[in-house]
């Protein structure tokens, strides 16, 4: 992973209460410099609330949040020079052009004007820079919101459901942009309920359910941890599927199949994130 293990976000004993209801309870987590951290959970799990708390849009009821060594309760507005935020509702001016939207936020963040053109080219919106946001497709709007978020070359980038409602092609282009930002060394925190996206992009994830973190770690390791079956699934050329224990005792049988040349593929039986989440909560991620 090549991560610098310096914590850029530290959340301790965080509990958030709205109208006597705990929407987040006892959240503890560290997010390290340079990683992509995913907050994964179904709608209403508390992902967006947690993101709002991490970005200082809400004040925590209990517990502490340190962002870039600043206590979020006493946040200095200057920290927003180092942070990029792409909200689920994109916060773009519909009547203004793409260029004017970026020009506005560039001005507020002391970003030189020539960077606007560079970023528009980077997100593939240069050709439509004069078009008003209202006339853009959903994918284009998402890319523009992403451009707005990375305008100030942030150290920390928060993405709230960045590919929600996008077709695979547009989602893939957003994924590419996220990867490029990570290569630049940006720490990225994204919320999603798309497990494929999380597995593809995230170095670590936290599975949220009803306001609590039910599991946190590297996606692959989480899946292996819940690999209770621990079997090898062998698909034979004749279409038969055979499951064998992932143990030295199966070696002889596997060797036999290999010698007969009848194996089409061999898989391990570890679950995916969706299955792990189901096992932990009894709920589906897309609920």
């Amino acid at each position: 992973m090549g991560l610098n293990m310096k914590s850029v976000i530290k959340v301790s004993n965080l509990t958030q209460i709205f109208f006597d209801q705990k929407v987040l309870q006892d959240i503890n987590m560290d997010i390290f410099s340079g990683e992509i951290f995913g907050l994964l959970g179904p709608s209403g799990a508390g992902k967006t609330t947690l993101l709002k708390l991490l970005t200082g849009q809400l004040k925590p009821t209990l517990g502490t949040i340190m962002v870039l060594e600043n206590d979020i309760r006493y946040l200095d507005k200057m920290i927003y020079h180092k942070i990029g935020i792409m909200m689920e509702c994109l916060g773009l001016y519909e009547r203004l052009s793409c260029y004017d939207n970026l020009k506005l936020f560039a001005g507020l963040n002391d970003v030189p004007k020539d960077k606007i053109s560079q970023i528009l080219q980077k997100v593939g919106l240069w050709e439509v820079r004069k078009r008003s946001v209202a006339k853009l497709s959903k994918g284009m709007k998402e890319r523009l919101a992403f451009a707005k978020a990375i305008m100030n070359t942030p150290k920390l980038l928060f993405l709230d459901e960045p590919t929600s409602g996008l077709d695979p092609s547009n989602a893939s282009s957003i994924h590419d942009l996220i990867q490029k930002e990570r290569e630049r060394g940006t720490t990225i925190i994204l919320t999603t309920h798309n497990m494929t996206e999380a597995e593809k992009l995230c170095d670590r994830i936290a599975l949220l359910n009803q306001g609590s973190i039910v599991e946190c770690g590297i996606p692959k390791e989480i899946c292996l941890k819940y690999n209770h079956q621990n079997k090898l699934r062998i698909c034979l050329l004749d279409g038969k599927i055979i499951e064998l224990p992932n143990h030295s005792s199966s070696a002889k049988k596997v060797k036999e199949y290999l010698e007969q040349g009848c194996i089409q593929s061999i898989h391990s039986t570890e679950p995916n994130l969706e299955t792990v989440f189901m096992e932990l909560t009894g709920r589906k991620l897309r609920e």
Binding site: Q57, K77, Y80, C89, G91, E94, F105, L108, N109, K148
Partner: peptide, 14 residues
């Protein structure tokens, strides 16, 4: 309503 004000306030504006 359109959350543009929130976006502005998160861009270092008071």
């Amino acid at each position: 309503e359109k959350n543009t004000l929130r976006a502005l306030l998160l861009s270092n504006i008071t």
